[in-house]
């Protein structure tokens, strides 16, 4: 709480010079005074004394809070350390055209597309992993940032629902991964870093790209999980085709390459939505390192507080004003 006080700033200072005005209510005499022969005949009553005091205090409070509000106070932007269990997860989601197909190659009416399956599972994953930092990148021909690595679940979920629009273009795995790694750059390693690649295919990576990615993974100490949404007739990650042709079955080659990265790597071959879910569950178990991260709280205008106090004080004063006696007797006393 005291720390918050340190962060209290204001735009203007000059209204503070007017603060002595707040003493004015203690000087003024109430204008409506009844003449009474002898106040010694009025019994001493603490309640009455306090009514008078409350009236003056409320007036002082009103002036003070309005002057403070004129200073336009605000709570400066601040960073709050937060601890969480979980990982820094960058989801790299494939949005290529083939994701619109279902697991059985030919899309049938009502069957789940691979994208829908991935979306459903990722949504569930995001919602359940409250303590993870999650970012998201979609890629097709080129990568697109959906949500930066952070605590913002809403951005990720909105990004996921945006994928309902359907995918298009090719599968540029390398660019997506490179972008995901960029988000770990320059940040303290406070939790296990995970790149979660969700795709239904792969692309050929040339040697230069392979080196670049390998450097990246090693430097960022990020582990890689690949959920491979395999179509019925899609290439297997483990079985090598007879023809020794990387171009024909890039998935197998990519899997082989990932195993040489020198960072923890796990591939899950999912051939139907149930397997996708199982794969996600096993990933969720993996990340259990405590995570420290800083959350930025935006600057906050504190003027409303002053206005609330001023409102309260004026309500009190008005209430007392309403209880004031206007006439004692019609023909009597008077001012």
């Amino acid at each position: 709480m005291l720390d918050l006080l340190h962060e209290l700033r204001c735009h203007e200072v000059w209204p503070l010079y007017l603060l002595p005005l707040a003493l004015l209510p203690w000087w003024v005499k109430a204008d409506a005074q009844f003449q009474y022969p002898s106040i010694s005949m009025m019994p001493h009553d603490p309640f009455c004394v306090w009514v008078e005091r409350v009236w003056r205090i409320a007036a002082t409070l009103l002036l003070t809070s309005l002057l403070l509000a004129m200073c336009r106070p605000y709570l400066a932007e601040q960073k709050v350390d937060r601890y969480g269990k979980g990982a820094h997860i960058m989801v790299v989601l494939d949005r290529s055209g083939s994701m619109n197909d279902d697991f059985a190659d030919r899309p049938e009416q009502g069957s789940a597309s691979k994208m829908a399956a991935a979306r459903r599972v990722l949504t569930e994953f995001t919602e359940n992993s409250r303590q993870d930092l999650i970012g998201m990148i979609t890629f097709s021909t080129s990568p697109m940032l959906v949500a930066a690595l952070g605590n913002d679940r809403k951005a990720v979920l909105s990004g996921l629902s945006a994928t309902e629009a359907g995918g298009m273009g090719f599968t540029a795995v390398d660019k997506g991964l490179a972008m995901a790694l960029d988000f770990f750059e320059g940040k303290p390693v406070t939790g296990s870093r995970v790149v979660l690649l969700v795709s239904d295919g792969a692309a050929h990576l040339d040697a230069k790209t392979q080196d670049f990615l390998r450097n990246g993974f090693v430097r960022q100490q990020a582990s890689l999980f690949w959920i491979y949404l395999r179509s019925k007739n899609g290439a297997s990650l483990t079985e090598k085709l007879e023809e020794d042709d990387d171009q024909a079955a890039p998935e197998y080659a990519l899997n082989q390459y990932f195993q040489t990265l020198g960072v923890p790597y796990q591939a899950y071959m999912a051939e139907d939505p149930a397997q996708v879910k199982a794969a996600m569950q096993s990933i969720a178990k993996l990340k259990n390192k405590p995570v420290k991260y800083q959350e930025v709280i935006a600057r906050k205008d504190m003027g409303y507080l002053c206005y609330a106090i001023a409102l309260f004080a004026s309500v009190v004063m008005f209430g007392l004003y309403l209880t004031e006696v206007r006439t004692w007797r019609i023909h009597s006393i008077g001012k």
């Binding site: 005499k29 109430a30 409506a32 005074q33 009844f34 003449q35 009474y36 022969p37 002898s38 106040i39 010694s40 009025m42 009553d45 309640f47 009455c48 004394v49 009514v51 008078e52 007392l320 209880t323 004031e324 006696v325 004692w328």
Partner: peptide, 18 residues
């Protein structure tokens, strides 16, 4: 009922009276 301020007619001060 009511709040008023009475003034002593012989100048002995003012009193708040509820």
């Amino acid at each position: 009922w009511g709040w008023m301020r009475v003034n002593d007619m012989e100048g002995k001060g003012t009193r708040s009276v509820f």
